[in-house]
């Protein structure tokens, strides 16, 4: 009887151990969900400032992880403003000045359109497993979904956030909550995914609230209106000439 109890306990423990994937495996599954050969996203960004809210509409063309082009469509003041990301370089075009400016240095920390996102966020490699080492710290439910809690530590020095803590949906492998920290451990940003979209076999965040902890206001709500994966994109769009077109 005792012998059979010991075997049962050992088997259960082994089964539980096998069921917990490694941090690296979880990150790869998240990355598979998010990234694709190409995608075109139409989105709205509602910025809840101290004096009220305003909504900015944009359309983005994304190729792999290192090419992205965004055109702002509304409101009128922002219409025609464009951004181009090519690997680790970022340019912005302003129709009022007909100038293309490369955003570099301390400007990268500036907010994009007054939102809680910075240009640095825009430049980041979206594939988490390329940048971070992950360690599973436990599990916790978020909005009724069981999540793995992962502590991410950067592999490189030149990243915007040295560490991150993410809550990953155990079934759908989507990050539902995230805290981003500076090198000294100071919390810089929080991210909460409010709803998800299912596109074929993928789960993709539909409504996300970004909050820059150092900034006043109630955060920035990013909503995906339309998303298309693996569609052909004219390579011309990822050139500086396309900014002025």
């Amino acid at each position: 009887m005792k012998m059979s109890m010991v075997i049962l306990i050992l088997c259960t423990a082994t089964l539980v151990y096998v069921q917990v994937p490694s941090g690296s495996e979880i990150l790869k599954k998240i990355d598979q969900n998010i990234t694709s050969e190409s995608k075109i996203i139409s989105s709205k960004m509602t910025i809840h400032g101290r004096r009220g809210s305003r909504t900015i509409e944009s359309k983005s063309w994304i190729q792999g992880t290192d090419k992205a082009f965004t055109e702002y469509l509304a409101p009128a003041r922002e219409k025609g403003t464009k951004m181009l990301k090519l690997q680790d370089q970022l340019w912005t075009y302003s129709p009022q000045t007909d100038r293309t400016i490369r955003i570099s240095g301390h400007m990268l920390r500036q907010s994009v359109m007054g939102s809680d996102l910075s240009y640095e966020d825009y430049l980041e490699d979206p594939q988490l497993h390329n940048v971070y080492e992950a360690q599973v710290e436990g599990s916790e439910p978020i909005n009724g979904y069981d999540c793995w809690i992962l502590q991410l530590t950067s592999k490189k020095d030149d990243v915007a956030y040295d560490t991150r803590k993410i809550w990953v949906d155990r079934q759908r492998y989507v990050v539902l909550k995230e805290n981003r920290y500076a090198k000294g451990g100071k919390l810089l940003k929080t991210i909460e995914v409010k709803s998800l979209l299912k596109i074929k076999t993928r789960w993709y965040p539909e409504r996300v609230v970004f909050k820059d902890v150092l900034k006043s206001g109630a955060g920035t709500e990013f909503t995906v209106d339309k998303i298309e994966f693996d569609v052909p994109i004219d390579p011309y769009i990822f050139s500086k000439a396309a900014l002025r077109k």
Binding site: R77, T97, M113
Partner: peptide, 16 residues
Amino acid sequence: ATLISSTMYGSMAMHN
């Protein structure tokens, strides 16, 4: 000279 600054609402402001 192009001034690059921030609007009252935090957007990037560019003006010649």
